[in-house]
Simulated assay, not measured.
Amino acid sequence: MFGTLPIFAGGVLNTLAVSTLVAYRIPQKQFLIWCVLEYGICLTRLIVLVVAQRAAAERRKTPTDIYILLGLAWAASVGYGTLISLLSGDWVVATLACLSAAAMVGGISFRNFGAPRLAGAMIVLTLGSCCIAAPFTGEPLLMITFLQIPFYLASMSAAGFRLNKMLIVTMRAERENAYRAQHDSLTGLRNRAGLAEAIAARRDGLSALLYLDLDGFKAVNDTHGHGTGDQLLRAVAARLGESTRPSDVVARLGGDEFVILSELLAPAALIKLGERLVTQISAPYDLAQDRTVTIGVSIGIALAPEHGTDLASLLSAADRALYEAKALGKSRAALAPLRKAA
């Protein structure tokens, strides 16, 4: 939002060129100060912008607050240059400075429409100096700036708030659509697509996949109805969330099938985790309408990269282990056989 490079480059080149030319034409202290301010602020903004873009690319926190403050400082510097240029009595210099300020306001309004209050503050700092200087120029016609600039500020602010509202609605819709695409609507857990992305995001490829299938869920669903079944699935999802670590990924593939992507790698630790999940999932559930139901869970476990690195391979291996767990009497965890070294 604040890092549009073409507008930034155009604004920097413009203000640096104007401040340099004005200082060359009138080499007085106040104009030299303006020139130094422009170079210092613009260079600092460029450094912060590059740092921010690199941080954003790496999904790290960006120094946005600092960049916004530098934007306000830059607007104030442009306003200062406009003020001293108007008061200089040199109309070539005044024309250059005012033209530069007016041009910058267009970029400010376009670039910062997502932050209308910031855009308004920058407009005031950039063009407000025209109103301050007008009474001291000896030109009564310049008093019209007291009407022009407030009107321009009001119209640009209104447009900015309207565009900001549209931006927020669009961003929320995109975020919600992205969430729906990767999460189960009933439980809020990740769905198959979200799980596949989580597996792909594991750069080291080291993880374990626990494939859970509820024992006795169909009987509950058939006896008490789908409403009770949905309540039970949400309760199971809640217990899985409480029973896993923050780094683990819990997903629902559909029906009564759940998956946990864990960073645990030791087979003994995974079997222990599976047994703990069996115990916790098998505890009675107090549902609505004073209904208490009990189910079990069978778990198949696969390892990455031993059993594969993609979702399909890991699910296939875990499904075989799950079949073994059910064949042994259900309500237990089984690890898929590891490949023997040649």
Results as ranks from 00 to 15, higher is better:
Leu5Gln: 10
Ala9Thr: 07
Thr15Tyr: 13
Ala17Arg: 08
Ala17Phe: 13
Arg25Ile: 15
Pro27Thr: 00
Gln30Val: 14
Phe31Tyr: 10
Leu32Asp: 15
Gly40Ser: 15
Gly40Met: 04
Cys42Val: 10
Leu43Trp: 00
Thr44Trp: 01
Arg45Pro: 02
Ile47Ala: 12
Ala52Ile: 00
Gln53Pro: 10
Asp65Phe: 00
Ala75Asp: 12
Ala76Cys: 06
Ser77Tyr: 09
Val78Trp: 01
Thr82Leu: 13
Thr82Gly: 05
Leu83Cys: 06
Ser85Trp: 00
Leu87Trp: 05
Trp91Asn: 09
Trp91Ile: 06
Trp91Phe: 04
Thr95Arg: 12
Thr95Glu: 06
Leu96Asn: 02
Cys98Ile: 03
Ala101Asp: 13
Met104Arg: 03
Val105Asn: 08
Ile108Glu: 11
Asn112His: 03
Phe113Asn: 11
Gly114Ile: 02
Gly120Asp: 01
Val124Asn: 03
Leu125Arg: 08
Gly128Ile: 09
Ser129Ala: 14
Cys130Asn: 12
Thr137Ile: 07
Pro140Cys: 09
Leu142Gln: 09
Thr145Trp: 04
Gln148Gly: 12
Ile149Phe: 00
Phe151Asn: 14
Phe161Ser: 07
Asn164Arg: 15
Lys165Glu: 15
Lys165Thr: 05
Thr170His: 09
Ser185Leu: 14
Ala193Met: 12
Leu195Met: 14
Leu195Cys: 04
Ala196Cys: 13
Glu197Phe: 01
Asp204Lys: 10
Gly205Glu: 11
Leu209Arg: 14
Tyr211Ser: 06
Asp213Cys: 01
Ala219Phe: 01
Val220Trp: 08
Thr223His: 00
His224Gln: 13
His224Ile: 12
His224Glu: 12
Gln231Thr: 06
Gln231Pro: 10
Gln231Asn: 06
Asp248Lys: 04
Asp248Cys: 05
Val250Thr: 07
Ala251Ile: 02
Leu253Met: 14
Gly254Phe: 12
Ala268Trp: 13
Leu270Tyr: 04
Leu270Gln: 09
Val293Trp: 03
Ile295Met: 09
Ser298Gln: 05
Ile301Asn: 10
Pro305Thr: 10
His307Tyr: 10
His307Leu: 14
Leu311Trp: 15
Ala312Leu: 11
Ser313Met: 08
Leu315Lys: 06
Ala317Phe: 07
Ala318Cys: 05
Leu322His: 05
Glu324Val: 03
Lys330Tyr: 12
Ser331His: 12
Ala334Glu: 14
Ala336Ile: 09
